[in-house]
Design a protein around this nucleic acid. Structure first.
Length: 278
DNA sequence: ATGTCGTGCCCCGCACGA
């Protein structure tokens, strides 16, 4: 249910890369970090394969949108069930890929997304990435204009800058994650007014959320920042902390992503009008 | 082209996507 009136809110996103094989890590992380809301991506499981019992036993309610083998997203809420507000993006009726789920929980609306990777480029996969991104940008505008407290959390498959969001762009020049078309769209999103939480709190720090399995990238800390949490106008002033749970990436048999989170301060109580004595 | 994972199919190795 709702966090205590004065409690802050921790919201996280975690690309698990297979919910069934990663369940022990997920549970370990939930127990240790206890996020109030967790967005998961790359479930790689059909709806029936989602481990709802274990997640309930850990104290979380959940919504999920599965798909056999690929994609799949879920929203977890500590102590209660998230209230679904959207399943899939508007304008993408024929989309067969499970990449967007939205719900209300703990007083915020959370959009959980798994933006297409887009490789190889050029090609139909890159075209699909841009098309999906455009639909997402449209929907994000609607959410932003609603003035509701909204967090858009997920694996964006965008490395926003060469300078701070990747260990070394040299070998990634042709990758879909660094293309101008990809980055322009991320910028367009920010131009709507959204706050990139991690970058805002740590403006000059190299931050990574993903280290691929190839070439010994994790031990070398050769990472990329592609998991992002964007905050609406209403939530941005309440941003207190943000970070990456790197210890999860260091576990044996880890996902290639680490959980990434924000902490939102308590909503200020509406100013009480002094009661006039009769 | 390569690296290493998780998944599913079809049978115990492969193709695929990332």
């Amino acid at each position: 249910m709702a966090a205590g009136k004065d409690a802050s809110l921790r919201i996280a996103t975690f690309n698990v890369n297979g919910i069934r094989s990663r369940l022990p890590h997920l549970l370990q992380w939930l127990e240790k970090e206890a996020p109030d809301i967790a967005c998961l991506q790359e479930l790689k499981a059909a709806d029936a394969g989602f481990p709802i019992e274990a997640i309930r036993d850990a104290g979380y309610g959940a919504l999920w949108m599965g798909q056999p083998s690929w994609n799949g997203v879920a929203i977890l809420a500590r102590g209660g069930d998230p209230i679904e507000s959207r399943r899939g993006l508007p304008g993408m009726r024929d989309d067969t890929q499970s990449r967007y789920l939205e719900a209300a929980a703990h007083g915020v609306i959370v959009g959980c997304l798994y933006l297409p990777n887009g490789n190889p480029r050029p090609g139909p996969k890159f075209d699909y990435k841009l098309q999906w991104f455009d639909r997402f940008i449209e929907h994000a505008q609607t959410l932003f204009d609603s003035k509701h407290p909204v967090v858009l959390a997920g694996d964006y498959n965008v490395v926003p800058t060469d300078a701070l969001d990747i260990y070394d762009p040299t070998h990634w020049r042709k990758d879909a994650l660094l293309q101008p078309e990809t980055r322009e769209r991320y910028e367009a999103l920010l131009a709507q007014g959204w706050t990139d939480a991690l970058r805002t709190l740590h403006p000059e720090e190299k931050i990574f959320t993903f280290w691929d399995y190839f070439r010994n990238h994790w031990p070398r800390n050769a990472g990329l920042r592609i998991d992002h949490l964007l905050l609406s106008d209403d939530l941005a002033p309440r941003l207190k902390a943000a970070g990456v749970d790197r210890w999860v990436r260091d576990l044996k048999g880890a996902s290639d992503h680490a959980p990434t989170w924000v902490e939102i301060g308590a909503k200020k109580a509406a100013k009480k009008v002094a009661k006039r004595k009769a």
